[in-house]
C-alpha cells in the first residue's frame, strides 16, 4: 500500500496555563481517509489539545502543521479560529454550542459563511449574484441536513431538537464549512446505545463518501474500537500510547490509566 497523504501533523505540542501543564509535548498525525481517535481519562487534556489545534488557544510550544492536498503546508500556531476553519479544519464541541434562537437550517447556513463572499452593500442591493449565492447556501445546507437525517426539522428552532439530533446538527454545521479534516469532541456523549449506533454509521459515512479525515475524542469505547484506527491515548497531558485498536486494548499502560495501578498486596 502506498504511503497515505499526511493531513495534520502535530509535533511536541505543549500548553501551559500558568504553572499547570495541560498538554505536555504531544505528537500526533492524521492521514488521509483515517478515522483517528484520541482517548484518555477525564482531565487528560484532550479538549485543550483540540482547542490548541483549532486556534482557540495559542500553544506554548510545538508545531501544528496542516498539509492540505495540492496546496502549500501551513503552520497553524497562533492563527485565529476562523482562519483555521477557512483552511479546512472544522470542529464540534463537547458541550453542544448551537445557535439556539436560529432555525436548524440557519445553523448550517452559518457554516457556509466562510465559503461565501457577499458583503454589506451587496446584501442591501440584493442583486442577481447575491440571490443566487443565497439560494446556493440554502440548498447546500438542506442537502447536508438530509445527509445527517435532520431534514424533517429544517425550520425548527435548534433549541427544540432532541439531544441526539443536536449533536448531529453540530456535525452538519461543521461539514458546511467544507473541511478536509473534521474534529469531533465527544460526539457520542450523553447518547443512548441506539443513537450511538446511528452516529457510528454517520461518521463512517462521512469518512467514506466525503473523503474527510476525522479525529475524534470519545469515551464510548465501543464506538472508538469499532471505527477508529489509529488510536492515541493521553493521560495527565502526556501521550502514553498509540496504535491500532487491538494494540491499545492490550497495552498495560492504557489499562493502568483507565483502571488504576495494580498494587502488590
Amino acid at each position: 500500500m502506498a504511503e497515505k497523504h499526511k493531513l495534520l501533523e502535530v509535533k511536541g505540542l505543549t500548553m501551559d496555563f500558568g504553572g499547570l501543564r495541560a498538554v505536555d509535548s504531544v505528537s500526533l498525525e492524521v492521514h488521509e481517509g483515517e478515522i483517528a481517535a484520541l482517548i484518555g481519562p477525564n482531565g487528560a487534556g484532550k479538549t485543550t489539545f483540540f482547542n490548541c489545534i483549532t486556534g482557540i488557544y495559542t500553544p506554548t510550544k510545538g508545531d501544528i502543521l496542516l498539509h492540505p492536498k495540492g496546496l502549500e503546508s501551513r503552520r497553524l500556531n497562533g492563527l485565529k479560529p476562523n482562519k483555521v476553519t477557512e483552511m479546512g479544519l472544522a470542529r464540534t464541541f463537547q458541550n453542544i454550542r448551537l445557535f439556539h434562537d436560529m432555525t436548524v437550517l440557519e445553523n448550517v447556513m452559518i457554516g457556509r459563511h466562510c465559503r461565501t463572499t457577499s458583503g454589506i452593500l451587496h446584501s442591501i442591493l440584493r442583486g442577481k449574484a447575491v440571490r443566487e449565492e443565497e439560494q446556493q447556501i440554502v440548498e447546500t445546507s438542506y442537502q447536508l441536513l438530509e445527509k445527517v437525517g435532520l431534514a424533517e426539522f429544517t425550520n425548527e428552532f435548534s433549541k427544540n431538537l432532541p439531544y441526539g439530533a443536536q449533536r448531529r446538527l453540530e456535525i452538519a454545521r461543521a461539514l458546511a464549512t467544507e473541511p478536509f479534516l473534521l474534529l469531533l469532541d465527544e460526539p457520542a456523549a450523553g447518547m443512548n446505545p441506539q443513537e450511538t449506533a446511528d452516529l457510528d454509521h454517520l461518521i463512517c459515512k462521512i469518512s467514506e463518501e466525503e473523503q474527510i479525515a476525522i479525529l475524534l475524542i470519545e469515551h464510548d469505547m465501543k464506538l472508538v474500537m469499532n471505527i477508529s484506527n489509529p488510536i492515541y491515548v493521553m493521560e495527565y497531558g502526556k501521550k502514553i500510547a498509540e496504535g491500532a485498536p487491538q494494540q491499545i486494548k492490550d497495552n498495560p499502560k492504557v489499562i493502568e490509566a483507565y483502571l488504576g495501578e495494580e498494587t502488590d498486596a
Partner: peptide, 25 residues
Amino acid sequence: NSRIGRAWIALREDEIACVAMGIDM
C-alpha cells in the same frame, strides 16, 4: 436576512461557536 445578518445573530448566540464556524469576529 443576509449573510452578514446571520453572522451577527450567530455572534449574539455563541461567540466561540461563531468563530469556530469561520466567521471573522
